[in-house]
Nucleic acid binder design. Sequence first.
DNA 1: CTAGAACAGTTCTAATTGCAATCATCCGAG
DNA 2: CTCGGATGATTGCAATTAGAACTGTTCTAG
Lengths: 141, 141
Amino acid sequence: MATERETRAQTDRQLCGLVNGLANQIEAHLRARAVTLGLTASQGAALRELTRPMTLRELASRMSCEPSNATFVADRLEEQGYLERHPHPDDRRAKQLVLTPKGTELRERLLDLLSEDSPLAPLSPEEQDILQRLLARALIR
Amino acid sequence: MATERETRAQTDRQLCGLVNGLANQIEAHLRARAVTLGLTASQGAALRELTRPMTLRELASRMSCEPSNATFVADRLEEQGYLERHPHPDDRRAKQLVLTPKGTELRERLLDLLSEDSPLAPLSPEEQDILQRLLARALIR
DNA sequence: CTAGAACAGTTCTAATTGCAATCATCCGAG
DNA sequence: CTCGGATGATTGCAATTAGAACTGTTCTAG
């Protein structure tokens, strides 16, 4: 005879566990594909998020990490010749991270690999659509 | 004029981003509540997952981390008097992690805190139900 | 029974990540 | 204009985390 409040808390915890579980699977999937290209998981994440030239802070935000960490990852990618730091046109404090041709090519190879066997593949396009809506709503706040 | 394959890959990536975003919010929420009790986020996660006496490996699996890390966290919780390592009744290799009364009490306080302002609160119970089903399906594999 | 593989936990080390401090630049109030 | 606070990037350092090596125990094929 649990109160409604208790069962809801329990559902909530269970749901959090599922979200974390799926996030971990996504991360594992990324890591596995990244290593085949000689990249770490974070480097892979950075490459994936670099849909266009962007500032280091924006990359950090997309990667859900601290700017200092993004600096670290960007250093490695730069050393390997995958990206360059260009001066930002409007803000002399900021830098624009720009993929080199080599980086762009690697990014496309990574995206191809990522689209294979996605952890979300078990869901039909309709289900994915519903999921997207629900997650977007939860993230509004 | 993107092919269907391309748009699906794009949706997939977007969806992964949302899942990761929500997972991060859940993590941040946990961290914030844990610190008010003098715990790190991992210690909080461990406490949350210890719904019953369990083996270190099971805890690691529930926390989605390596056993070596679970050992580290368990050490801290043990030092602080929140749990004890008991010999496992059936397997002399394994140990059972058991919360002390002090640990059980702290766990309940943590769970109370976690149920406040859950990142999933914006969703109605019905929506949470749908979400749960979808996530469970995605995690089957 | 017994040898060898598999497994639970721990330890050690290395890599990753976050946090605080710093420098340079930008912006807004007055 | 200019001064103070906010912001972008970087650095150094501490804490967290993963991965491989190791010990002791269990399981299984023969």
